[in-house]
Design a protein around this nucleic acid. Structure first.
Lengths: 224, 224
DNA sequence: CTGGCGCGTTAGGAAGGCGTCAAGATGGCC
DNA sequence: GGCCATCTTGACGCCTTCCTAACGCGCCAG
């Protein structure tokens, strides 16, 4: 989980940002002005900083300088001002990106992802663990205590759909449609065969599955 | 001096960018479409890419993917479209920044400086070792206990994509598209031939590969 | 009690992917 | 023009994967 420091004096915007970031599993710190921003950053070093330029106590460029002295985390500047001079000044001071208000939340989130991706290459690992096996969605790898588990493409496809929604019940129709395509919604046979194969490869006791569960008459469910 | 690749089909804009960048001592390459962009990038690896989304032959997102397969240089996207969806798609594909046309030259130059500043210090040690061979991505050299290994350009291209993502499963489609270009996604023959050649040159026991692995029906994987 | 239904399990044949080899193309270089 | 390295292309055998059908079991309703 990445820690994000939000430096913003507008309470309402701060609230909106915090909620959105927390919903995406970021660890959020907040500071209402430049002085406390530097203090918080020192106490809890952030992985990324979102910095509003219109602060009450000091200019945004000063904050950037203050941070850049010791901190290499990416800085994304927010500002209502849209003049080139402001942007150039902030970027050359050490900021990494400059977003003009009003901005779309989706865009800001994408820029945050891009900045974090560049800063820490390959640490964001969507990996799911159970006590019996581990699934790495990025590298498409499944391991159990004995080592790597070889899955066929169809087996992987079924497993991936289940694992992407942990704990959620997936209807048979949805699985069949996503893996075999529309028109196969009634071939529940296929599902039984492949669920059996997955359980044989992954469950410690395939006849008593603990992670790949059947909900009779409804569908299947993956549980950690 | 940093090398910048400009991918832009608008002659006039290309000219303006080139002049401005050359005046700032950048080494400028240019490509008018996605296909030649990938070709030029392969021949003369850029330190930064400026990519217009409105290309005649392929979508900007495809170009980003094609570059990201083996190239870690920052990518700044230019686009006339200002919708959030476009920005999010480009950034999540691997772009580092998104600038909407019309833009100010000073701002773009500042964003270029910011991108290069972030990219340069963490130049990351581009050398991968296994117990059977060593790969130096910077000098494009491969050595095994017997000395240097001679690879053909295509062999190298395939190997580089795999090695840039250690442990990750690369789908055949992606390899084919990035090495042979779009339109070759179904020529899985090529892959089999070249994987065999790479294994014969690199693996101690080519018939039982330990580093260049096949995941049947899905793709290939490089493991240290 | 009995038949139907859904689920798990197994096995075998068909289809297609994979590794391998070798024979043309292709293009650069002398 | 001829030589060489490299890239394409086709053919073959082997092996994996997928589909399909059959059977057994447990559950529930009739």
């Amino acid at each position: 989980m990445s820690r994000v420091l939000i430096v913003e004096d507008d309470r309402q915007l701060l609230r909106a940002l915090s909620i959105n970031l927390r919903a995406r599993q970021y660890d959020v710190d907040a500071a209402p002005d430049g002085t406390s921003a530097l203090a918080v950053a020192g106490r809890r070093p952030p992985d990324l900083v979102i910095l509003d330029l219109g602060l009450p106590d000091m200019t945004g460029v000063d904050v950037v300088h203050g941070l850049r002295g010791w901190c290499t985390a990416p800085i994304i500047v927010l500002s209502a001002r849209d003049t080139q001079g402001d942007k150039v000044a902030a970027l050359d001071a050490g900021a990494d990106d400059y977003v003009t208000k009003p901005f779309g939340m989706d865009e800001l989130l994408a820029r945050i992802r891009a900045a974090l991706r560049r800063a820490s290459p390959g640490d964001s690992a969507p990996v799911i663990r159970t006590d019996a096996f581990t699934i790495d969605l990025a590298t498409k790898r499944v391991t159990n205590p004995d080592g790597d588990v070889r899955l066929t493409p169809t087996e992987w496809h079924v497993l991936e759909i289940l694992v992407r929604h942990p704990g959620k019940l997936i209807p048979q129709k949805q699985l069949l449609q996503e893996v075999w395509g529309p028109g196969y919604e009634s071939e529940t046979n296929y599902l039984r065969v492949y669920m059996a194969q997955l359980r044989r490869k992954l469950e410690p006791d395939p006849s008593r599955p603990r992670h790949l569960l059947t909900e009779p008459g409804m569908g299947y469910r993956f549980t950690t």
